[in-house]
Every structure is written in C-alpha cells, then in structure tokens.
Design a protein around this nucleic acid. Structure first.
Length: 315
RNA sequence: GGACGGGUGGGUGAGUGGCUAAAACCAGCAGACUGUAAAUCUGCCGCUCCUUGCGGGCUACGAAGGUUCGAAUCCUUCCCCGUCCA
C-alpha cells in the first residue's frame, strides 16, 4: 500500500475557551486558505440545539462548509469515541479532496480522543451502568469505590471516592474488558495518522472573556433562545435528554417551568459559562505544542498572527 | 410609643460558655479528568510571620461596656432590620 494518502497533510486546530472567537477565526482562516471547518464540540453535534450551543448559522458561514454538527437527535447518547470515528472519516475525505481542515475545538476530551486516540476500552454499556448507578444510589458512592478497590486497586487509587461518574466507568472497563483499567490503557492508543497538526490557542484576557460571555448570553436570549427551548420542549424530546443538561438549556427550561425568573436564569447561565470557560482553559493549558495568542479570534491582530502560523504550518 | 423576632466571614445560613478562624452550601481562586466532558470530581478560601508545623502572632460574629480562668454564645446600654399592637 502506498500513494499520496500516506503523505502528511496539514491540519489546523483552533482551540480555546467558549466565547474566545474560535468560530470566527476558523471561518476567517478557511476563507483565506480554501479550507473547511471541522467542529470539535460535544454540544453542537446535537440537532435542534442551535442558539445556546453557538452554532454558526449558514448565513454567517460565508460559504465555508462546516462539518460534524447536527449529527444526532436529542435523545441519543454521543461519546468521544463516536466523535473520533466520525472526525477521522471527515478528515480523510478532506484529505482526498485536498482541502485544508480547520478544526475548531472547544471540547478538550474530544480533541484529545481524535489526536491521541482512545485506549481500546469497552464502550458504554447502558445495562451495566444502570445497575452500577442503582448501587451507587442505594449504598453511596463509597460502596462502589470499595468494590473497585477490590477488583482494580490501581484504578481506585486514581479516582476520587465521590466521583461516581468516573468510578462507574472504571468498574465498567474492568468488568467488560476483564483487564484492569491500567492494563487497558497501557495497551496503547492509536494517534491520528496522516496529518501534520498545527495548533493555535486563543486566550483572551480573563476579564475581557468574562465580559464577552455575559454579553453573548444576553445576545443569545435576545435572538430567540427561549423560543428555541420552548419548541424543543414542545417537540416532546425526553426532558432529561442529555442536551437539556447543557448550560443554558437547563436554566431556560427551569424558567419555562416557572421555577426561576428569566433574570435569574440569565445570571446563572452567565455564571455557569464562566466556570466552564475556566475548566476549558485548565484543560487546554496541558495541550502540547500550542501557539498561544492572547486575544479574541475576531481581533485583527490575532487573525494576522494566526494567518502567519497557518502559512508556516501548511508550507 | 409598646410586644416579640433578629443582626455571624463576599452571599445564604448553622452555631447558645472552652472541642470555633467559626458547620454546611454558594460564589471566588487553583487543579484533575482515555468513551455522559457545557459532564464529573479535588484542593484552597480573615490577615500575617517563619525553622511550613495537626507552628507563632494579630484581627473577627452590629457598637460600647460588663460577668468569667475563658464569650459569637451570659448581663447592661445603645444603634440598626423585620413582624405585630397602638
């Protein structure tokens, strides 16, 4: 097997916290380099959840194709592994068509799953999980952690006792794989093949970012977010479907149910978004080989600098 | 004017004589995170000093006095706030 597909193709990654201007920069770069945007965002994969997930409407895409949004219905469960598979397919297609991919990444786990791969661990098993969740509810998270300590002490040491979500996943891996989590992880992960990655990180000044988050939240509400949520509820998707837990959707749903005022909802959305941005920053700080740019993706200076970096990366 | 109830750290709010720099929760800050990740979890969170120790000093529970070996907790006066009666 040989051929052009084995050559390394450039891949541009634009990463950063929410509201840092990844989409704007992505589109700008795509226009200048004849590229297409590949979204790496765990919320934009859900159809019908548009305004609050900050999807770029077609009218603002400037003709740049956007991939990996609107993949599943609200009731479906989507995972990092699924993202990885779909992203690889899209990237291979772009490579074949000799288009430059510009990946706009807000979900650190999905980005890492794509670039570094995931261990060959078992996928979620809803039956096992519901049993484990029942145990946790009945006997407390400590109980399941004790169980994990017995069947996989190494994994137990790495997971906080009260982190039920991660304890459940560890037990799930250990049970289904019939190996310890450590063994599964040490068996290696398959990194993305065939691309030369250039990463650009957006890191606006914290205060400015927070101010932008607050303004953007108000804009989203002003442009019909509440009506979108009302329509989603009316369409009858299960109210505990995953996307209703996304920041904003849960608060606006509470408001529609009369639990909180719109003003309270907006304030708590802004707060949750700031906290989320901080977590993203913490995650991305550990991302290797990032060209960090201090500012928003829409800033002219940032764009100029990014263009230089991309030009170097695609040379 | 009278009768009660209450004033606690950025917020809510426990605490009725020592175990209290003061529970818990929130906010804030920092961090972790290989299949729910916009999720989940962890640490710190009055000021200050150093030989970083279950270390020392200082300040702190509306204000000022007092009782006590010891007070956020008891007493007195005063100042606020809420409810009710006039």
């Amino acid at each position: 097997m040989s051929g052009p597909s084995l050559e390394l193709a450039p891949l541009i990654v634009v990463l950063g916290p929410t509201a840092s201007g990844k989409s704007a920069l992505g589109i700008e770069l795509a226009r200048r380099f004849d590229a297409e945007v590949v979204v790496c965002d765990s919320t934009q994969v859900y159809r019908h959840f548009d305004i609050g997930t900050a999807k770029i409407p077609a009218s603002e895409q400037h003709g740049v194709p956007h991939h990996l949004t609107d993949l599943v219905e609200p009731d479906e469960v989507f995972t990092a592994g699924e993202y990885r598979r779909r992203a690889i397919a899209v990237l291979d297609d772009l490579k074949r068509r000799r288009k430059l991919p510009v990946l706009t990444a807000g979900t650190g786990l999905y980005l890492r799953a794509l670039l570094e791969g995931l261990a060959d661990a078992p996928e979620r098993s809803e039956e096992l999980r519901s049993r484990l969740r029942a145990i946790t509810e009945r006997r407390g998270p400590e109980y399941l952690h004790h169980l994990l300590a017995r069947i996989d002490p190494e994994a137990a040491k790495k997971v906080a006792v009260r982190d039920a979500q991660k304890v459940i996943r560890a037990v799930e891996i250990r049970t289904l794989a019939r190996q310890t989590v450590g063994e599964v992880h040490r068996s290696g992960r398959e990194a993305l093949q065939g691309f030369r990655v250039t990463k650009i990180g957006l890191l606006p000044n914290r205060k400015a970012l927070y101010a932008h988050i607050e303004a953007r939240t108000r804009d989203m509400v002003a442009s019909g977010w509440l009506a979108e949520v009302r329509a989603l509820v009316a369409r009858g998707s299960s109210p505990d479907a995953k996307p209703f837990q996304f920041i904003g959707y849960r608060e606006l749903k509470d408001h529609l149910e009369g639990k909180i005022s719109l003003e309270e909802a907006v304030r708590s959305i802004q707060q949750a978004t700031r906290q989320f941005a901080k977590r993203q920053i913490t995650w991305f700080r550990r991302e290797p080989d990032v060209h960090w740019l201090e500012g928003f993706g829409a800033d002219a200076k940032v764009i100029d600098r990014a263009v230089e970096i991309v030009a170097n990366g695609t040379r």
